Amino acid sequence: MTILLVAFLVMNVVGLLIMGEDKKRARKHQYRIRERTLWLVALFGGAVGTTAGMQLFRHKTKHVSFKIGFPVIAIVELYLLIRFLL
């Protein structure tokens, strides 16, 4: 269980940081992080972090797929984590 919690925490920190980094690169007109990478981080346990990063950095909030998709995945991941821990 400890490994699961650590992995969940790490992926969500990565999700938060990757959204911030992509926003920073967007402002500087630099090479961006692929949307596929953002989705993979979210799908592999980082959806809470990517959703938080989306709101915190106001990044990808106009994209309906991100605006709806990340929170839905986050809810599913939190549900599965709670079910697994109980």
Rank of each mutant, 00 (worst) to 15 (best):
M1E: 04
M1H: 08
M1L: 09
T2V: 13
T2H: 13
T2A: 09
L4W: 12
L4P: 04
L4Y: 14
L4K: 15
L5V: 09
V6W: 13
V6I: 15
V6T: 15
F8H: 05
F8Y: 13
V10Q: 01
M11W: 01
M11I: 00
M11L: 07
V13S: 03
V14P: 02
G15M: 09
G15Q: 06
L16M: 01
L16A: 00
L17P: 00
L17Q: 00
M19W: 11
G20F: 00
E21R: 11
E21T: 02
K24F: 06
K24P: 02
R25T: 03
R25Y: 02
R27E: 11
K28P: 12
H29W: 07
Q30F: 06
Q30E: 14
R32A: 08
R32F: 07
R32P: 11
R32S: 08
I33L: 06
R34H: 10
E35S: 09
E35K: 08
R36Y: 07
T37L: 12
T37S: 12
L38V: 11
L38Q: 08
L38G: 05
L38R: 08
L40K: 07
V41C: 07
V41R: 06
V41S: 02
V41K: 03
L43K: 03
G45H: 08
G46N: 02
A47W: 10
V48F: 13
V48P: 05
V48T: 10
G49S: 07
T50A: 05
T50I: 08
T51V: 03
T51Q: 07
A52E: 04
A52L: 15
G53T: 07
G53R: 11
M54P: 07
M54I: 04
Q55V: 06
Q55D: 03
Q55W: 10
L56P: 06
L56C: 02
L56G: 03
L56W: 13
F57H: 06
F57V: 03
F57E: 02
F57D: 04
R58S: 09
R58W: 04
H59G: 04
H59C: 06
K60F: 09
H63D: 10
V64R: 14
S65T: 13
F66V: 10
K67E: 03
I68T: 13
G69V: 03
G69N: 06
G69D: 01
F70D: 00
V72I: 15
V72P: 11
I73G: 09
A74D: 00
I75C: 10
I75G: 12
V76H: 01
E77P: 12
E77Q: 15
L78Q: 01
L78Y: 01
L78T: 01
L78W: 02
Y79K: 10
Y79N: 04
Y79W: 15
Y79Q: 02
L80H: 12
L81N: 08
I82P: 08
R83W: 14
R83V: 14
R83L: 14
L85Q: 10
L86K: 15
L86N: 15
L86T: 13
L86S: 13
L86C: 09
